[in-house]
């Protein structure tokens, strides 16, 4: 069975917004864009900077430290797709958002 963990209630996150969370000891960033929810690690794969302090533009989040940009849907770094910020599956059930911590 996939390890789904409750994140937050759907109405706690507005469209185009992001929220850092701690789930099972992992620092995650939950984002809402285009009506869907996305979950990625909150640590930039470059130097561990918190992406929650970065800027979200469409499906692209830019790290506040050195401006590295990632696609929140796949976690891919735009300048080199081999580098990824871990991305997790999400689902909504009964107004609650769950994150699949298995990648």
């Amino acid at each position: 069975m996939a390890p789904w963990f409750f994140a937050i209630a759907e109405n706690e996150l507005d469209e185009g917004e992001k929220k850092p969370l701690l789930i099972e000891g992992d620092k995650l960033l939950l984002l809402r864009q285009g009506g869907d929810f996305y979950a990625i690690s909150n640590k930039c794969p470059h130097m561990d900077c918190p992406l929650s302090k970065g800027t979200l533009n469409g499906y692209v989040i830019q790290c506040p430290c050195h401006d590295w940009q990632f696609d929140i849907r796949s976690g891919e770094f735009l300048n080199a797709e081999e580098i990824k910020v871990p991305a997790y599956e999400t689902k909504v059930a009964d107004g609650k958002i769950y994150v699949n911590m298995e990648r």
Partner: peptide, 16 residues
């Protein structure tokens, strides 16, 4: 900033 951020180590992705 735009220029200098592409010189932060490892800068390989910007000069691949």
């Amino acid at each position: 900033r735009e220029h200098d951020m592409q010189l932060v180590c490892p800068c390989i992705p910007f000069h691949r």
